[in-house]
Design a binder for these strands. Structure first.
Ligand SMILES: [Mn+2]
Ligand SMILES: [Mn+2]
Ligand SMILES: [Mn+2]
Ligand SMILES: [Mn+2]
Lengths: 225, 225
DNA sequence: AGCAAAGTTTAGACCAGACTAAATTTTAAT
DNA sequence: ATTAAAATTTAGTCTGGTCTAAACTTTGCT
């Protein structure tokens, strides 16, 4: 330790959550800057500055101030591992232990950091190596790839058009319960009956009923393209 | 915060592990003192001093220097909760996910701190509210009681006597694999054929074969009384 | 170009939980 | 009753991760 290189630290749960969040923000085409990352991580910007510096020293991210943070290959690998854990756990809790889709996110948020690779493998095998989690979110493969199926949001479906729901990108438990109550779940066939102007609600028919959904909520609901 | 009472801290995983360890040591009739607790927790004695002080301030333990630490009612409640988590998880991994009994301890050691009460309940229900874990260790009940069945160790069984194994109080993976290989697992019927003098080995017949077990190992193997 | 707002970093503090090294206290053995 | 050994605590340091408050930089608007 005489010459320096005290760098290092470890890949802690907090580090994993930062990497995961950076990955998901970039994938959603959001800019990953100090303030936006701080908001997502529910910490203060100065905390992000410190953490991003540490991540950069670990070789997990690169950072250009006022421009953004992005993951290195190593950082992305870890992020995808954690996301794989998260989504496998969510699905396992629903499929095997009878959880509802609104209950699993919180649980997976902590479990994702502590399951061994062996347990991950057993869970994946038990589920038959599934492709998507209960919300329709794709599950990263073991080889570190994340298939990106062509989708568009419910708010982008033309009026009077039918579509098949594939994914709900919202983790708020109350909204998920609400949507489940309406039958708005992955796999459902719906028809967009109207899209109100001025960022107004999107009306969808599910079965015989028509429901008006807030535009921002509709944007988190993805359909097959 | 003007008048003091900064006491408090939180029940972190580390705190849970200290409480669990104190509980298990006392239950095994070991003295819980600074040095012995440090050995069990794999930390230095000075770390124990600091933690015990914090636990005492939280009202979870009482400490008389040079005499010992013991849990308060509150501390014991938490310890039993964690032990219940641990043993339920171990059994779940074996029964549902095909783990072997030597693989589950490490996994449970971290999972015990992060499963929700809801997940605990689902696991318990899925297993039919079991009484013992894969090693025969009793699982604390929801009401915070831990049944203590009458047992004695294999080393205390008279020679030429048969007995039914109920528990193996050893968590070393290699020894567990060794014992499983011999058929020395909870439920097995064995006969003690000889107990060598001078703390020598205990010979047991399992099926048609006789195996000589180190006395200390035999002492961790409990049989029905 | 000038300037305010927004974004970012620095400086300094805190907490949890470990460590080492040194002091202190108790116990046990002569 | 001394004294050596063992047990315990204190003092001070470290790391990871957060915070507030203050500085500094960049952007964008007039
Ligand atoms: Mn997480
Ligand atoms: Mn999900
Ligand atoms: Mn533990
Ligand atoms: Mn066990």
């Amino acid at each position: 330790m005489t010459t320096a290189e005290n760098l290092a630290q470890a890949v802690t749960p907090v580090v994993e959550d930062y990497l995961k969040t950076i990955y998901l923000m970039r994938r959603a085409h959001e800019q990953v800057k100090t303030v936006s990352l701080a908001a997502r991580m529910k910490v203060k910007p100065s905390s992000v500055t410190a953490m991003v510096k540490a991540l950069a020293e670990m070789g997990l991210v690169e950072h250009e101030p006022y421009y953004g943070v992005h993951l290195t290959a190593n950082g992305e690998r870890i992020a995808l591992e954690v996301i794989r854990h998260h989504r496998l756990i969510e699905l396992y809790l629903v499929e095997v232990l009878g959880f509802t889709w609104d209950e699993v996110h919180e649980e997976a948020e902590v479990l994702e950091h502590v399951i061994s690779e062996k347990l991950e493998a057993r869970i994946a095998a038990h589920l038959g190596h599934p492709a998507v989690d209960p919300h329709g979110d794709p599950i990263p493969k073991l080889d570190g790839t994340l298939p990106d199926t062509a989708t568009r949001s419910l708010a982008d479906v033309p009026e009077r058009t039918s579509a098949r729901l594939v994914r709900v990108c919202d983790q708020n438990a109350e909204r998920l319960r609400y949507l489940a109550g309406l039958g708005v779940v992955p796999g459902a066939e719906v028809m967009v009956t109207a899209i109100a102007p001025f960022e107004g609600p999107v009306s969808v028919r599910v079965g015989k009923k028509i429901h008006a959904l807030d535009r921002r909520l509709a944007q988190t609901i993805l359909v097959e393209d």
